[in-house]
Design a protein around this nucleic acid. Structure first.
Lengths: 235, 235
DNA sequence: CCTAATTTTGCAGCCACTCTAATTATTGTG
DNA sequence: CACAATAATTAGAGTGGCTGCAAAATTAGG
């Protein structure tokens, strides 16, 4: 029941396609590689590529679901008594300390960033991801607060935009040759200022009815056209 | 010299195409109208449409250059002694008072918004515009401050994201049936809270060397692929 | 008018992506 | 093991946005 040959082959095929694609993208740039070339490199048909990845961008931005739902998860999973702003600050600083990639800062972030910044299509995709991130966070905030509180809207936008700006600055530091540790240190200082500014939003600690820490279904943007697929239709 | 028949015809043709396109988009939705249909409606060839508008989205988002450079212009043109945050607040509240469209709030904003929210392509375009807006604002901030100040990055991101969130809330109020004046009033209150939060960024009033109020050339994002064209090449 | 500069157009083509209809491989069952 | 159900892969044709290029129409200026 659990693990047929079919399932394994599917995962392997998907993986192989994604790896081949990433290799080509890193080498020659996202826009200079056609889906047909990816298909040839992976020795499958173009249709098979689209069976696994709904768009060309999905070949690059795998695991995007994680980052989209991350902030919302942090907010939902925070301990009792912690404010929203404090929770995000904690997670952001933790990512800095552990060198985690979830805010875009990691070893080799520059190569990644180079490819993205060279491609309008990829930039558009990441803007979409930030939007989805903000919407997911907003949904999490609404689970606690009132119906359509403008403060939730503003707070979500400020948190996403701020951390995004900080990460962008961090990448620019890395690109300027600064080692990751040094960049992280400077980022910590700036992050402190940023989150301090948002303190006025953080007054409400956390209400009772805590939702289960990590519901897997993300709210998502109803207008994003296509979700990131994980494989061919299972009819 | 100034005004040949050729120039006039060009403006008229451009205008006619844009009007026909907007009519079709409003009626049937952006994604359900092909460029070929726009061309037929305007009685020109598809190539002519692309001569005037570099992308299909440009048919919808005309005058986008204004909104992209607006915030930067507000910052550059603010009076001596006014902080950046105060300048944007003043402009935002002024737009609310005068019912101006520059922040997306105006009579008929809902129809406009309906079309946009029904089209992933248009949403992507507006995300791009917000990005360009932020970059332009950041460039303006850098004309006064230090080289690559992370506080400028964060402030620009907060201002753009915050006003965007407020406008989105405003549109949701309009869509819920609230009259424009009432929505504007509630928006003023929320805007006050929002800008108050950003006060810590507003300490620097304004330095000496004020640049000329409105330089027309926008910095723009080097990676946006194509600028919004204003007509066929005059080469 | 006649020529040079421009605008418009038609045509061919690229690429992402979709749909449909075979074709092939994997599975569970007898 | 054979066989039928199921699911994955493929080829092929087509759509739509967009780009070149070269010919035809229009306009400008002498």
């Amino acid at each position: 029941m659990g693990e047929g040959l079919r399932e394994r082959k599917k995962r392997e095929t998907r993986r192989y396609i994604a790896d081949m694609a990433m290799g080509l993208f890193m080498e020659r740039g996202f826009d200079n590689v056609t889906v047909a070339e990816v298909a040839r490199a992976a020795d499958v048909s173009v249709n098979t590529v689209f069976n696994y990845f709904p768009t060309k961008e999905d070949l690059f931005a795998d695991r995007q679901d994680e980052v989209v739902g991350h902030l919302a998860g942090v907010v939902r999973g925070r301990p009792q008594g912690e404010s929203v702003v404090a929770a995000v600050r904690r997670d952001f600083l933790d990512a800095l300390d552990t060198g985690d990639w979830r805010y875009g800062l990691h070893e080799g972030a520059t190569e990644f960033s180079d490819v993205v910044e060279a491609s309008p299509a990829l930039q558009a995709r990441f803007r979409l991801l930030h939007d989805l991130r903000e919407n997911a966070l907003l949904a999490a905030l609404r689970e606690e607060g009132g119906r359509d509180d403008p403060r939730d809207r503003v707070l979500a936008s400020q948190l996403v935009a701020g951390t995004r700006a900080l990460s962008a600055w961090g990448v620019s530091l890395l690109r300027a040759g600064e080692p990751l540790a040094a960049a992280a240190m400077r980022l910590r200082a700036e992050a402190a200022r940023f989150f301090a500014t948002l303190e006025p939003y953080g007054t409400a600690p956390k209400t009772r009815r805590g939702a289960p820490p990590a519901p897997s279904a993300l709210p998502g943007n109803p207008d994003d056209g296509r979700a990131s697929g994980n494989g061919p239709e299972t009819s």
